[in-house]
């Protein structure tokens, strides 16, 4: 289900894949692995608040092959490159409502104050740009990750770039559905899309067993 970073760029790699790594027990981070025009493999990921990174992937990441045709993977690889070239400032947030990515230019249109993306919902927003809906989002439960959301707010409070308005808006969105990295990466391997909550959760658990902490 998961491949080593060293295998990216090989024959099995279709120019685009989802990458994931563990930072500790039940703490995962995801991004998009893509091949550039000149053959380099890069990782595009939302690392933190206003911190989108486009870099060579660390060996700590594993990648999963999405159940997409090669054609669509190539299209997404091009889009990743376009997003990276725009270097957008994407706020971290629990609710991605109103945020969109222009598939033509890779520009990210921000949502209302406080709306933002996580590493996982950034992937979903990228897929959405081409009408590729990964998850049946309305099946996701609300109020299931409040502890994590509160901890995130506490973490952001100490940050210089975070305004009072952003914090207030984040507080308001506490309880919003959370799409966790392992669900998003796991679901991407399933077919057909969109994937429902139960299946994505199950795939996420399976995926966790393949990830070293």
């Amino acid at each position: 289900m998961l491949n080593d970073i060293g295998a990216a760029g090989g024959r099995a790699f279709k120019s685009f894949a989802l990458a994931i790594r563990a930072f500790g027990p039940d703490h995962y981070h995801s991004g998009m692995l893509y091949q550039t025009k000149d053959g380099q493999v890069m990782l595009l990921h939302l690392a933190d608040n206003f911190d989108l990174r486009n870099e060579a992937p660390s060996e700590r990441y594993k990648w999963a092959e999405p159940s997409l045709t090669t054609s669509r993977c190539k299209l997404l690889a091009v889009l990743c490159a376009k997003i990276a070239s725009q270097d957008p400032k994407i706020p971290y947030g629990f609710d991605k409502t109103g945020i969109s990515i222009n598939s033509s230019t890779g520009a990210v249109t921000p949502g209302p104050e406080g709306k933002g993306l996580t590493c996982a919902s950034f992937i979903m927003a990228t897929l959405d740009a081409y009408g590729m809906r990964l998850l049946k989002e309305d099946e996701w439960p609300r109020n299931s990750h409040e502890q994590w959301q509160n901890a995130t707010i506490e973490r952001l409070k100490a940050r210089e770039e975070v305004t009072e308005e952003q914090l207030a808006a984040l507080q308001k969105d506490t309880g919003a559905c959370r799409f966790v990295p392992q669900e998003v990466v796991g679901a991407s391997t399933a077919k057909p899309w969109p994937v429902g909550y139960e299946k994505a959760t199950m795939l996420g658990i399976v995926l966790q067993t393949h990830l070293p902490n």
Binding site: T70, S71, R72, S104, M132
Partner: peptide, 13 residues
């Protein structure tokens, strides 16, 4: 097929 996918998805939005 690549071309079809490119034009269909690029114009989808």
């Amino acid at each position: 097929a690549d071309a079809i996918v490119a034009i269909a998805h690029m114009t989808f939005p």
